[in-house]
Write a protein that binds this DNA or RNA. Structure first.
Lengths: 185, 185
DNA sequence: TGCTCCCTGTAGCACCTGCTACATAGACAG
DNA sequence: CTGTCTATGTAGCAGGTGCTACAGGGAGCA
């Protein structure tokens, strides 16, 4: 594969990732996707082996983009668990994150059923999240850093999902969490 | 619609619900579904208006089944939040719950994107969950009962999802949560 | 000019999708 | 027996799917 072709493939991956963020992963037809990109399905299948290859590569790109944004958005100093949770909840719920999070939901639902490549991509993405949280976490006992980060991510993800489904309802999950939990030990 | 036809429809709903639990909601073709039921797509569309009607009715059945199981599995006495969480985590992760929870993931992912009827069904299901948790929750301040229940459900759901995706990995989310959180007023 | 090779448009295949028209066998009423 | 109505099988339509065969344009090379 020539470098010109590779770079064009890379360009396509970027643009397809944008579309996935708009539409969700679940169902997108090659013809429609191509039309939005101003090209044809024939071309997509020239630069990608098949649809699975295309989706896989583009999801990896979305995941990498999320990781990069996380890396960039580091708080000034490490925070203790409760403060970090309070800081992260609004960030995850921010409007700009909504498309990423929608893709994330799909990824988890399909990955959770064991479908590849969704499972692998979701796993790697989760592990990056955990690492990112660990790095921003101020804990007394270093041995509990990992488990605290995992627990924070679980809460974050659960709250986000609940709120996404209940959106428009009167439940205020952020307030619920903030008012209920004291993080120890 | 005659009662005979209605009862046959109800019977089909039950059996389709079983199949949904095996396969997940995402993609199931009427022909395949009918074959597994020992009938034809023609018959399914005789007893249901269209596929949406079929899926909707069957998902409602799954949701009702979950609600019934919750109702049945009530602990002996109300528990304080931390104890209830510790009791619920293994229950949600139990092997028997895996199919229900897989359908639940789909429901949330699609409901979260606003797709009907998934959104409505997911919302009602969540509200039942919250009610169930509230009833089993021993709290000092009655005013915090609802918010505590919501927070517990968020943690439960987040932990379940993380674990489902990471399954086979070495993370032990239950232990993480148990070791990290102290639940207070 | 002709040759070769990378890119891309056209057309279409084979299959799958939900859904429907039509025919018919059986039950039951007269 | 005859007519009517319900339940079900057969066949197929129209649209969509991923994917492919084929041809040609155009750039570089001889």
């Amino acid at each position: 594969m020539t470098t010109a072709r590779l770079s064009k493939r890379q360009d396509l991956v970027r643009r397809i990732a944008d579309r996935l963020l708009d539409h969700g992963v679940a169902q997108i037809a090659l013809r429609d996707l191509a039309a939005e990109l101003g090209t044809s399905d024939r071309m997509l299948l020239y630069y990608f082996e098949d649809k699975a290859d295309l989706v896989s590569a583009s999801l990896e790109a979305v995941s990498a983009r999320l990781a990069a944004r996380l890396e960039q958005e580091s708080p000034a100093a490490p925070l203790p668990p409760a403060a970090l949770l309070a800081a992260l909840l609004p960030a995850v719920r921010a409007e700009a994150m909504a498309p990423v999070m929608s893709v994330w939901s799909d990824l988890c639902a399909r990955g959770g059923r064991g479908e590849e490549p969704f499972r692998g991509i979701a796993q790697r993405s989760i592990i990056q999240w955990i690492g990112w949280i660990e790095a921003r976490l101020a804990v007394a006992d270093p041995g509990s850093r990992r488990s605290t980060a995992v627990a924070l991510l679980a809460i974050l993800e659960g709250a986000r999902q609940l709120e996404q489904v209940l959106a428009g309802s009167t439940q205020d999950i952020e307030a619920s969490l903030a008012s209920v939990f004291v993080i120890g030990p």
